[in-house]
């Protein structure tokens, strides 16, 4: 029990501390922006991690919710002059509803079919974002008004803490789902749907619920991305976005608690450090994705957790040695 608690909250404390002091360590708006983007993509990754890493449902359409959240957020502010918190809430609710409407029929499909159906859904959203110029601003997208909260303009640093707060909240939600009966049921659905239903799990309901939750995570990430970038454009729902998501998830480690943070940090920061290598980005992401899948399929986060787990539960290291042979998560 206590080792589980430790496993959940030790990384949380570390992340919280890093997040809180980071602005003092960083110099200039550019570095602060990179830090914010890391939190944004960690949120995005956590949603995908719940959906695929834990529940085993591969969606290649998460970028659609990322975009729908961001566009809704922008449109609610532009057309209805909603305040930031209300527009944020609006974006999340719209994504939850769309997630439910799409999830119900689509989750009857499995594996490749599910992946393709969600990808096609995202292509439709992308096409709409590109083509419905009057509404979405076409290729150039929409601008998001300068963020303000309760009448006060948000400075760059305030925005940082807002985005960081969202990431921290998302982490808690993730831990909650993972470490209660919800997470167990989702694992069961991933492993064997028939056996899951015979022990009393409503498989359809769980699949749809986690799809909606992942859509809401994507919405929050998309909105935060729009806040940081001061606008939305069709690239939010583009194929590049899902490659980013897959890369960060695999590099960080599918099913790992801290994976999305590590993955996001690496995937966001790496291209910035390799300055001037921007045009190599697609290539590097592809190579990174493949290399990790072949040589470190648990990702960095999963591997760290694995070795830490051994020392938490079992000082002799006996069990961790045995666990190496355990089957891979998909």
């Amino acid at each position: 029990m206590s080792s589980t608690t430790l496993r959940n909250w030790l990384p949380a404390t570390v992340i919280l501390m890093i997040g809180a002091v980071l602005p003092w360590l960083l110099q200039g708006n550019f570095q602060l922006r990179i830090a914010m983007l890391t939190w944004v993509f960690a949120i995005f990754g956590m949603g995908f991690n719940l959906l695929y890493g834990i529940a085993g449902q591969l969606s290649l359409g998460q970028q659609a919710f990322f975009a729908i959240g961001a566009y809704t957020f922008a449109l609610l502010q532009i057309h209805f002059a909603l305040s930031l918190p209300l527009a944020l809430l609006g974006g999340i609710v719209v994504c939850a509803v769309v997630g439910l409407v799409i999830g119900l029929p689509v989750l009857r499909l499995r594996t490749h079919y599910l992946a393709m159906a969600t990808l096609m859904f995202a292509m439709i959203v992308h096409d709409v974002a590109l083509r419905w110029t009057d509404f979405t601003g076409g290729t150039s997208g929409l601008r998001v008004p300068p963020p303000s909260l309760f009448g006060a303009r948000l400075e760059r640093i305030d925005l940082y803490y807002l985005v960081f707060g969202l990431a921290a909240a998302a982490y808690c939600l993730q831990i909650f789902i993972k470490s209660t009966h919800l997470g167990r049921a989702l694992e069961a659905v991933k492993t064997d749907e028939t056996a899951a239903s015979s022990v009393g799990i409503d498989v359809t309901r769980y699949k749809v619920s986690i799809f909606v939750v992942a859509a809401m995570f994507a919405a929050v990430a998309g909105i935060a991305y729009a806040l940081v970038s001061r606008g939305v454009d069709p690239s939010y729902s583009g194929i590049g976005m899902v490659v980013n998501l897959l890369t960060l998830s695999v590099v960080g480690g599918l099913g790992s608690r801290i994976g999305p943070f590590i993955g996001a940090a690496i995937v966001i920061i790496a291209p910035q450090i390799l300055a001037g290598l921007q045009e190599y980005q697609t290539l590097i992401y592809g190579v990174g994705l493949l290399v990790f899948m072949i040589f470190l399929p648990r990702g960095i986060g999963g591997s760290i957790e694995r070795s830490a787990e051994g020392s938490f539960d079992d000082p002799k290291g006996e069990k961790s040695a045995r666990r190496i042979s355990r089957a891979e998560t998909p």
């Binding site: 045009e279 290539l283 590097i284 592809g286 994705l289 891979e328 998909p330």
Partner: peptide, 23 residues
């Protein structure tokens, strides 16, 4: 690896091919 993992692997190949073609 599971078939879906391998599918993601081919997506990585697609990304590598596009990235190289871009250069």
């Amino acid at each position: 690896s599971q078939p879906l993992t391998i599918m993601i692997g081919t997506l990585a190949c697609a990304s590598i091919m596009t990235g190289t073609a871009l250069l």
